[in-house]
Design a protein around this nucleic acid. Structure first.
Length: 330
DNA sequence: TTGTTGG
DNA sequence: CCCAACAAA
């Protein structure tokens, strides 16, 4: 999707506390650039979110691991006044606002945003006048600031997939492609397009230019319009269906043939589902990641990867009831 | 080589 | 959480 956010818990008894703690955490990470405070706030939010009962005082909260004097006080203040002065100040702070804006440009993170604001650049208009301070990725991110925040309708991804299929097929009929992410989970809109490709002859290394050829073909036909980065295994860029269409973020990754299904599983998500499934794999004595499924012996860390021929194989090996991609959301 | 960014 | 790609200098 566009950019990272806070985990944002749903309806736990202490949801409102978690919310302001995560907001404070983001502020410490992005603006103060204090990773320790950031971690402290996140830990606090995490213990609170795991709590089955409502906290009614700071001193009560303080007994929890990860909540000390400072946060306890904030909880009291929030309980008493329904708000947090520190947070109000942050929300009215123009520097904070500028950093949050700049950070929405693809390629600009907290560090770059900080330095831009320190140089007096706080708006997209100013940024546009100082492209000399930006690298290629950031220039593209700025150029398509609006487009990249727009959701992509499912139908459009389907059409893009068709175009890709067609051109890859004539490049090499043995290339396989699967579009993962929320699209594969059946959502009617997605933040970006995440395509996985593989080829029966691609085992382990080599294949120095397969991805470059693929990208080249998709450029030639006019689908790919921008490149953010392009290595041997991962392309990040942008595409559009036709003149006048919205420009969309497109990622293409080339994965080895024997790792394809683990990769498809992983990049289909959702994150929550992946965590659950990995946890289950561990219970069953396996370790599962985006590359492979390996048995883990009693000693701790062995594992020749299990041979996988389909996504379903992975479920079967760890004794986890198969879920269709549509059933893997949240 | 290292820090930054995105995923 | 961990990794690919990039850019700095």
């Amino acid at each position: 999707m566009g950019k990272r956010k806070a985990p944002a818990d749903e309806d736990t008894p202490n949801h409102d506390f978690c919310e302001f703690l995560l907001e404070l955490a983001e502020y410490e990470k992005n603006v103060s650039r204090n990773i320790h405070k950031y971690n402290a706030y996140r830990k606090a939010a995490s213990v609170l979110s795991a709590l089955p009962t409502r906290i009614t005082s700071g001193s009560q909260a303080k007994k929890l691991n990860g909540i000390g004097e400072k946060i306890a006080k904030k909880i009291d203040e929030f309980l008493a006044t329904g708000k947090l002065q520190k947070l109000e100040n942050i929300q009215n702070d123009s520097k904070n606002a500028a950093i949050n804006l700049l950070t929405r440009v693809s390629g600009i993170g907290p560090a770059k945003a900080q330095s831009l604001v320190n140089e007096g650049i706080t708006t997209l208009e100013q940024l546009d006048k100082h492209k000399d301070k930006l690298n290629h990725h950031q220039i593209i991110g700025l150029k398509y600031f609006d487009d990249f925040e727009k959701k992509i309708p499912r139908q459009e991804i389907t059409e893009i997939e068709t175009v890709i299929q067609k051109h890859l097929r004539q490049l090499d009929p043995d290339i396989q492609i699967t579009i993962c992410g929320s699209y594969r989970r059946g959502k009617d809109e997605s933040g970006d397009i995440d395509a996985l490709i593989t080829h029966p002859s691609y085992l382990r290394k080599k294949n120095k230019n397969t991805l470059k050829n693929v990208v080249g073909a998709l450029q030639k036909c006019g689908l790919i319009t921008e490149t953010l980065s392009l290595g041997d295994t991962k392309f990040m860029g942008a595409c559009k269906l036709e003149e006048g269409s919205v420009t969309r973020r497109l990622d293409i990754r080339l994965t080895p043939y024997d790792q394809f299904f683990c990769a498809v599983l992983y990049f289909t998500g959702s994150d929550m589902f992946n965590k659950e499934m990995r946890a289950h794999a561990l219970e069953a004595g396996f370790t599962l990641n985006e590359y492979s499924l390996r048995p883990v012996g009693s000693t701790g860390v062995p594992g020749e990867p299990v041979e996988i021929h389909s996504e379903r194989d992975i479920f079967d090996f760890i004794g986890y009831p198969f879920k269709t991609p549509e059933e893997r959301s949240r």
